[in-house]
């Protein structure tokens, strides 16, 4: 990594200038954990890293809106800050629950939520959870700000729909009282491994009726994927064992990719079994 330039711009304008045009191999940097891995493995050799730590205060902080309806979380927020935040634990406990399954305390002290999203590895744990929470991203670039629903953010393996020069500034997360949520991380080699399959679930129940539902699959396709066919079988219905089995069967058409944590067939089987179990648990 000899010859790597590092910059810490003090303003957004400075950051945009340093990052240059679409041809540039200068890269914005959050905590740098994923970038360092790619650089060490020689998968990627940036000409420069541009730390966003000091570029703008809006990249920092965890704020609950005054009406209590949504969180705005700066992209430079570390996983540890999210993990130990009282209001997050109270209003978005699924985030706190997911954090403890994610890497280890040292990585969580450094890695940021913005870097995690920009990395766009479909095996990451947090993106499917953000998606199941109907989150969106506020981006900022030379041409101004945009709100991008998370559902439209990922373009494929390590690819996002960010425009040239655009940066992830904040994540907006609606608070959804009354929803039951869970992130199911299925590992096949050791407890702290990357997932073979990840399932982010949200259930809104009224008495015995499932009034709304979110099911997001990760680590099995080229990006986190909402399982709408399974959702539509459950929405507005009583979650009987038969109904849950039908929803799990409805995942059979998904084109799942094999990787070193499991073959496509095995992952499809894991998905069916663990989705049904989690739905049963959450609906009780």
């Amino acid at each position: 990594m000899i010859g790597l330039d590092i910059h810490e711009p003090q303003s957004l304008e400075e950051a945009f200038a340093l990052l240059g045009d679409d041809e540039s191999t200068a890269r914005p940097m959050g905590g740098g954990t994923a970038l360092m891995l790619m650089m060490k493995a020689r998968l990627f050799k940036p000409s420069a890293l541009v730390s966003l730590a000091k570029a703008d205060p809006r990249f920092h902080g965890i704020h609950l809106s005054s009406d209590g309806k949504a969180f705005t979380i700066g992209a430079m927020t570390t996983f540890a800050a999210l993990e130990h935040h009282d209001a997050i634990a109270k209003h978005l406990p699924v985030i706190t629950q997911t954090m403890v399954t994610l890497a280890n305390p040292r990585v969580r002290n450094v890695a940021t939520i913005g870097g995690n999203l920009a990395h766009a590895d479909p095996h990451l744990d947090l993106p499917p959870v953000w998606l199941s929470l109907d989150s969106s991203i506020r981006t900022i670039g030379p041409a101004g700000e945009r709100i991008v629903p998370l559902a439209d953010f990922f373009a494929g393996y390590y690819e996002t729909n960010l425009l040239p020069g655009e940066l992830i500034m904040q994540v907006h997360v609606p608070v959804s009282p009354g929803w039951r949520r869970r992130y199911v991380k299925i590992t096949t080699r050791s407890a702290h491994d990357w997932p073979a399959v990840g399932i982010a679930l949200g259930l809104q129940m009224q008495a015995e009726l499932c009034t709304d539902v979110r099911i997001v699959l990760s680590a099995a396709t080229d990006r986190p994927l909402r399982l709408e066919a399974a959702e539509s079988i459950l929405r507005g219905q009583k979650l009987t064992p038969g109904r849950i089995a039908d929803a799990a069967q409805a995942t059979g058409d998904i084109h799942i990719e094999s990787d070193s944590r499991g073959s496509a067939d095995y992952k499809a089987h894991l998905l069916k079994v663990h989705l049904a179990r989690a739905l049963q648990d959450l609906s009780e």
């Binding site: 280890n104 040292r106 990585v107 002290n109 450094v110």
Partner: peptide, 22 residues
């Protein structure tokens, strides 16, 4: 890769992976 903990260093009181930190 930040997985094994042999490179642990405390920076401003937080444990970090010294092999992943510039």
């Amino acid at each position: 890769q930040g997985l094994c903990g042999c490179c642990t260093v405390l920076v401003n009181g937080s444990a970090v992976a010294g092999c992943l930190m510039l």
